[in-house]
Design a protein around this nucleic acid. Structure first.
Lengths: 106, 106
DNA sequence: CCGCAAGTTCGACCGTTGTCGTACTATGGG
DNA sequence: CCCATAGTACGACAACGGTCGAACTTGCGG
């Protein structure tokens, strides 16, 4: 009855991405690891595909933070939501930032 | 009588600087602004010389976080402590990171 | 010697947020 | 249909950390 399907999230446009939010998002170890795994696999990762020591709901929470900060995009397919890094946008806004972060030793 | 003079701080060696701590340090708006002002002036700034809307003790707190994360060095002169950005170390460890952060609009 | 100026330390307060469990909502397969 | 799977929503809890004021230390100048 409700016209609501799976919640179609909104993502900040490139010019709505702020460095403060990006740094805050990257400052958490779990989220940093998520970004690393996304960058490493150079592909989309579903919520459950990350190798992380936290529960589902915590993953959702962190993915939300990353999404709202403008770090990731999501694509819905069935019940699965695939996430990808917004590399283009981030490189355009903060050239070198992602590179520098990912250059750090694990 | 105590042999304690002004507290001579210890600073992490280059290889003791970790990306997690650096990102955590940069994630606070006040500390980010401190780093920006240090980078901008390309010089040393005393605790009281930063243009910031917080009290002395809060400045001290943030400078401590920046110091322990490996972002700044300090030089004592009289009662004044001059702080400078560890640009060389940061660029060597995380090439592009500082550049990317500073490229962001204020 | 006295006092002021620059920072530090300490304790308190309180908002933020990372975490989990539980309940819920889709989607797709037998 | 029914159920399993993938993820979200919500509420509770605890820990972390940013903030301040007040007291303290140090160094310098009259």
């Amino acid at each position: 009855m409700s016209t609501e399907a799976a919640p179609l999230y909104t993502y900040p446009a490139r010019d709505e991405i702020h460095i403060e939010a990006v740094l805050h998002a990257l400052a958490d170890p779990i989220r940093l690891e998520m970004v690393r795994q996304l960058a490493e696999s150079d592909a989309e990762l579903a919520c459950g595909e990350f190798e992380l020591p936290v529960t589902k709901s915590t993953r959702t929470h962190h993915l939300r933070t990353l999404r709202e900060a403008g770090l990731i995009l999501g694509r819905q397919q069935g019940t699965t939501r695939y996430n990808s890094l917004r590399r283009n946008d981030l490189d355009a806004l903060f050239p070198g930032l992602l590179q520098g972060v990912l250059a750090a030793p694990r």
